[in-house]
């Protein structure tokens, strides 16, 4: 077959190599993009997203859960919520998928160098932040203290828990886990606090003036966390939010993802809280 010349809307092929269920509705997929996609993907910066195609169902934006591995494979952590993710979750290893990207802006890594970083993840928000976390830990000496606060609704919905606790055990990461709701049987076992992320943040002493905060979670989370972080002394320029919008094209054309006059797919999905001031519909 003739190799498709690279046009922006044509996905590269990718093969599903491995899948690991993380919770009842969330699975970690490892995919191997075809040769042609690798050069582009190698420029991936944590916080950027890819457009993942599930043939027959459509295309969805996903923020990779880690940087591409040296062999070019990519980890995507996806929750089953609708018609595309439903079909994705039914795919077995070996299945053919499609990929475009990476798109959008990632976290300003250069600027964050040498500074403490506080990651705040709510629910599935851990997925995009995990690539940032992995990067920070791999380049551990280039950054200040790394802290992850991660809240889930229930212990069994907490993704990557073992992996995260193992990382914390190496000493490179300060880890705080919290659940909104814990069924009786699980108490103690998980060593996580009960409550909401903002509660966790309230009791946290840190170098607010120098810290960069990276936030990702369900829409209501941003509003309260931004206020709390600012109150704690983190400047709005250093509060980085990874936002979600409905995306159709990923390249600034379809207009579904606008917040104010900015397009989430081009100007984001990572925004500084300061950029979003005056855009009430942003958060």
């Amino acid at each position: 077959m003739k190799k498709a010349q690279h046009t922006p809307h044509i996905p590269f092929a990718a093969r599903l190599l491995e899948r690991r269920d993380l919770s009842e509705d969330t699975t970690l997929f490892r995919i191997a993009p075809e040769e042609g996609a690798l050069a582009e993907l190698s420029s991936f910066v944590p916080g950027q997203f890819v457009q993942l195609s599930v043939p027959g169902a459509g295309e969805i934006p996903i923020s990779p859960a880690d940087l591409p591995a040296p062999d070019g494979t990519l980890e995507l952590c996806v929750r089953r919520v609708g018609h595309v993710t439903e079909l994705l979750h039914k795919q077995q290893t070996g299945a053919r998928l499609g990929i475009r990207g990476p798109f959008g802006s990632g976290f300003p890594l250069r600027e964050m160098a040498g500074r403490p970083v506080l990651l705040l993840a709510g629910g599935l928000g851990i997925a995009p932040l995990r690539s940032l976390l992995m990067h920070l830990l791999r380049q551990r000496s280039s950054y200040g203290e790394v802290t992850l606060m991660y809240g889930a609704k229930q212990p069994r919905l907490m993704l990557f828990r073992e992996e995260l606790t193992a990382l914390a055990a190496t000493g490179g990461l300060r880890l705080y886990l919290t659940v909104d709701f814990a069924p009786e049987t699980s108490e103690g076992e998980y060593s996580c606090a009960i409550g909401l992320l903002p509660d966790l943040l309230k009791g946290f002493r840190f170098d607010a003036v120098n810290t960069y905060a990276a936030v990702c979670g369900p829409p209501p989370l941003y509003r309260c966390l931004v206020t709390d972080l600012e109150r704690a002394g983190v400047a709005a320029e250093r509060i980085l939010l990874s936002l979600e919008r409905r995306m159709r094209c990923g390249i600034g054309r379809c207009c579904h993802c606008a917040l104010g006059q900015k397009l989430c797919c081009v100007d984001g999905p990572v925004f500084r809280a300061s950029e979003l001031k005056g855009i009430p519909e942003a958060l």
Partner: peptide
Amino acid sequence: YCFDVREYP
């Protein structure tokens, strides 16, 4: 010019 994109198997 905004558009929706849908896929049908």
